[in-house]
Computed example of a mutant assay.
Amino acid sequence: MNDPQHLDYDALNALKEVMEDDFGFLIETYLKDSSDRLVALHELVKSENADLIRRTAHSFKGSSSNLGAVFLASLCSVVERNALDQKFFTLPEDVSRIEAEFLIVKQKMLDFLG
């Protein structure tokens, strides 16, 4: 099995070039927002509110994709689909996978910032 691509460094470098001095703030904001979304997803999974789970996962997917967190975005897509299909029994494990991947992405982004 191939290792997933955790970060698209070409995308990050392009963002860094465009954002210049605000790049660090962008990464910090993403990491904070993502941590908040993870907490929300864990709570929402307990509530089985399919629409809120789907919307939260969709938002997390979009921000992750925009910052080059390719595999994390794909995991959010899984949660989005499973919530839409009301497969609530899979969601706790799905969110745990997102959390594990986010920890990897977070460290790689912090390393990228230096």
Rank of each mutant, 00 (worst) to 15 (best):
M1S: 14
M1R: 08
N2Q: 13
D3H: 12
D3C: 06
D3N: 14
P4S: 09
P4G: 11
Q5G: 00
Q5V: 13
H6G: 00
L7R: 07
L7F: 08
L7T: 10
D8G: 10
D8I: 02
Y9T: 13
Y9Q: 12
L12F: 06
L12N: 04
N13W: 01
N13C: 02
N13Q: 04
A14M: 12
A14W: 01
L15M: 11
L15D: 03
K16H: 09
E17L: 15
E17G: 11
V18W: 04
M19Y: 08
D21V: 12
D21H: 08
D22L: 09
F25D: 15
L26N: 06
L26M: 15
L26S: 10
I27Q: 08
E28N: 15
E28A: 14
T29I: 00
Y30T: 06
K32I: 00
K32E: 10
D33S: 12
D33W: 00
D33T: 09
S34D: 03
S34A: 15
D36Q: 15
R37V: 01
R37W: 08
L38F: 08
V39F: 02
L41D: 05
H42Q: 09
E43C: 08
L44V: 03
L44P: 01
L44Y: 03
V45A: 06
V45N: 04
K46F: 00
N49F: 07
N49M: 04
A50W: 12
L52M: 14
I53W: 02
I53P: 07
R54E: 14
T56K: 13
T56Q: 14
A57H: 05
A57V: 10
A57C: 04
S59H: 04
K61P: 05
K61R: 05
G62K: 10
S63E: 05
S64R: 09
S65C: 05
L67S: 07
G68P: 08
G68T: 07
G68Q: 05
A69D: 09
V70Y: 05
F71P: 00
F71T: 11
L72Q: 14
A73T: 03
S74V: 00
S74Y: 00
L75A: 07
L75Y: 10
C76H: 06
C76P: 06
S77T: 09
V78D: 13
V78S: 11
V79E: 01
E80W: 07
E80C: 09
E80I: 12
R81D: 15
R81N: 15
R81T: 14
N82A: 01
A83H: 09
A83L: 04
L84S: 14
Q86N: 02
Q86K: 06
Q86R: 03
Q86Y: 00
K87R: 11
K87L: 03
K87N: 13
K87Y: 00
F88G: 06
F88R: 04
F89V: 13
F89C: 02
L91V: 04
P92G: 02
E93Y: 02
E93T: 14
D94Q: 13
V95Y: 03
V95E: 02
V95C: 01
V95T: 01
V95H: 01
S96D: 12
S96C: 12
R97A: 11
I98P: 11
I98D: 03
I98M: 03
E99V: 07
E99G: 11
A100N: 13
F102C: 04
F102P: 05
I104E: 04
Q107M: 08
Q107D: 13
K108T: 08
K108A: 12
M109E: 07
L110S: 06
L110T: 10
D111H: 14
F112M: 03
G114D: 06
